[in-house]
C-alpha cells in the first residue's frame, strides 16, 4: 500500500514536471480546453441567472382583473364582495384608477406624459393571489372572472413566466448539446496529445515492458497527464467565466441604475465549480485512457 501510494505520488510529481517543462505547449493545450469548456459553462451561468430572475418574479402567480372604464363605485363594491366570498382567492387588493395613475407618475418617470393627458386612461383593477398556484386552477379562475359583469380583461401574470420557462428549457437543451460536442473536442485534444507523447516515448515504453513493467504502470503517467490537462483546462474555463461575469456585472450596474431594478449576475456556485473541475479532469483522463489503450495494444506480447 505504501509502495503503491509512493508510486502514485512520484508519477504525479513527474507529470507536473513534464507539464512545466514545456510551458508553451501546455498553456496552449490548457487554453484550448479552457475556451472550449468556457462556452457551454458561460451559457449555463447565463441561463441559471435568467432562471433565478424569472422564478423570483413568478414565485407567486397573480391574476389582474381590469374593470371596464365605465364601471361605477357600486360595481367595484360588488366585485369586492364576490372576491371576498370566493374560495379560490387567498387574498386580493384593490387599485383604483387614480391610485394607478399616481403610481405611474411617480415611479416610471413618465410624469410629463401623464400630465399631458386630458383624462385618466387607466381602469380600476383588482390584484388577486390565488390560493392554489397550479396553472390549471389559475386558468379556470381567469375564465370565471372574465364572465363577471364589468370585468373587461383578466390577465394571468404567470403566463409570460411560463413562456420564459419554455424558452429556458430550449436554451438548456442547446447548452447540453454544445457541452456534449465540446466535451468530445476535449477528449479528442487529450487523445491526440497523449498519442504524440506515446510516440515520442515509444522506446521507453518498449524497454519498460521488456523489463517487467505492467500495463497499469505504463499507463499511469499518461492518465495523470490527461487528467491534469483536463483539470487545468477546467480551471481555465472557470477563470474565463468568472472574468466574463465580472466584466458583465460592471456593465450591468449601469443598466440597473437606469432601469431602477437590481440586476446582478451570479458566478458559478461552489457545487457547479466542483463539478466542472471534476468533469473536465474526467474527460481528460478518459481521452488519455482511450489513447493509451489503443496505442499500448500495438506493443502487446505476441
Amino acid at each position: 500500500m505504501r509502495i503503491w501510494l509512493s508510486q502514485h505520488a512520484r508519477t504525479l510529481a513527474a507529470t507536473l514536471a513534464r507539464l512545466v517543462r514545456s510551458p508553451v505547449a501546455s498553456l496552449l493545450n490548457v487554453g484550448v480546453i479552457g475556451v472550449a469548456l468556457a462556452l457551454p459553462v458561460g451559457f449555463h451561468v447565463g441561463l441559471a441567472n435568467l432562471q433565478a430572475f424569472a422564478s423570483e418574479l413568478a414565485a407567486a402567480p397573480q391574476l389582474s382583473l381590469f374593470l371596464a372604464l365605465e364601471a361605477s363605485a357600486s360595481d367595484v363594491a360588488q366585485i369586492d364582495q364576490r372576491l371576498k366570498r370566493h374560495s379560490g382567492v387567498r387574498k386580493y387588493h384593490y387599485i383604483s384608477r387614480e391610485q394607478a395613475l399616481r403610481e405611474i407618475k411617480t415611479s416610471t418617470g413618465l410624469a410629463d406624459v401623464v400630465e399631458s393627458l386630458s383624462h385618466n386612461p387607466l381602469p380600476d383593477a383588482f390584484v388577486v393571489d390565488a390560493s392554489d398556484g397550479a396553472s390549471q386552477t389559475l386558468e379556470a379562475l381567469r375564465d370565471e372572472f372574465k364572465r363577471w359583469p364589468k370585468v373587461a380583461h383578466v390577465q394571468l401574470d404567470s403566463a409570460w413566466a411560463q413562456r420564459l420557462e419554455a424558452v429556458l428549457k430550449l436554451g438548456r437543451l442547446a447548452v447540453l448539446m454544445l457541452g456534449a460536442l465540446l466535451a468530445f473536442a476535449l477528449i479528442a485534444v487529450t487523445f491526440n496529445t497523449i498519442r504524440l507523447q506515446i510516440l515520442t516515448q515509444r522506446e521507453e515504453i518498449e524497454i519498460a515492458k521488456l523489463i517487467g513493467a505492467t500495463n497499469p504502470f505504463i499507463r499511469r503517467p499518461f492518465l495523470y497527464f490527461g487528467a491534469l490537462l483536463g483539470l487545468a483546462g477546467g480551471g481555465a474555463a472557470w477563470l474565463i467565466v468568472l472574468g466574463g461575469v465580472y466584466l458583465l456585472n460592471d456593465g450591468l450596474s449601469d443598466l440597473s441604475r437606469l432601469y431602477g431594478v437590481p440586476l446582478r449576475l451570479h458566478p458559478l456556485t461552489a457545487q457547479d465549480s466542483l463539478s466542472l473541475l471534476l468533469f473536465s479532469a474526467w474527460l481528460g483522463w478518459f481521452g488519455a485512457r482511450l489513447s493509451v489503450g489503443r496505442h499500448l495494444s500495438e506493443l502487446e506480447f505476441r
Binding site: L210, I211, G212, A213, T214, F217
Partner: peptide
C-alpha cells in the same frame, strides 16, 4: 498477459543494441 510482466522480473535482459534511454 497480465502475468507476463511478473515473469519477466525474474530475468535480467541484455540486448544486442543495449536499449538504453
Amino acid at each position: 498477459p497480465r502475468a507476463i510482466p511478473f515473469l519477466r522480473r525474474n530475468f535480467g535482459l541484455i540486448f544486442q543494441d543495449h536499449k538504453l534511454l
